[in-house]
Amino acid sequence: MARTSRKANRRHPLATVVLIAIGLAFTGGGYALFSSTATADTSTATSQATVEEGSKLFAANCATCHGMNLEGTTAGPSLLGVGAASVDFQVGTGRMPLAMQGPQAMQKPPQFTEEQTAALSAYVASLSPGPSIPTDSQLTENGNATNGGELFRINCAMCHNVAGAGGALTEGKFAPELTGVESKYIYEAMLTGPQNMPVFNDHNITPEDKRDIITYLKYIQNNPSPGGFELGNLGPVAEGLFIWIFGIGAVVALTVWLTAKSN
């Protein structure tokens, strides 16, 4: 408990504002999942002990903003119906609990261990059903990369860039880079639509399609560009900067050598 209070003290005074913003995100996610006809089942395998552990963690770390019964407060959204997938994504990638105010919750080293995250997810899912954490069989990376690539370009590339390098949104928000993100979290993000990302439910992008998208992302991540270093995959801006700094730089250095009188 001492640890928890220390964390609470560390919060920035403006954290409330952020929590409201994030709360809104959760509300949206909650709505989305509530009205979804695709009701994901809660894991029945979760032991009662895990749920109890999660309950304690929730009361200590999350209830201040999200309410004791997930009902939400002015500081944070209701978590009813967000499901285990959403909790796993937000807590597992370190986005929750919030560290500071900002346009959107930033990814950071997770605050809880895997067991604690699982317990929190189980607890939230036990109170109200929602999308569950994808199973390993949904996350295999041997799907159809061609289909995944096409779907990625149509549904994701406009925000995340064709190579998953990320991109800007309005008012300081951004779509994060996807390189190095675990398959599980990519899947959960599509399913739950964290922050300002739209929800891609299983009717829009089927579980097979999601697997294909992950397959595609892992393909381009694991097969380095045949052309050599990728310059951040930022496209012509990075290329232009490179030629002006290194191309022109090298050429000018050599012209100076070429025209200087020899010793």
């Binding site: 590339a157 925000c159 995340h160 064709v162 390098a165 990320g166 381009i220 045949p226 990728e230």
Partner: peptide, 23 residues
């Protein structure tokens, strides 16, 4: 050593998709 214009990432032209950072 340095990739330029990796068209294999961009894919074929289609009027519907677009990439972030289109320049």
């Amino acid at each position: 050593f340095f990739t330029i214009n990796p068209i294999w990432n961009y894919g074929p032209y289609d009027p519907s998709p677009v990439s972030a950072g289109t320049q």
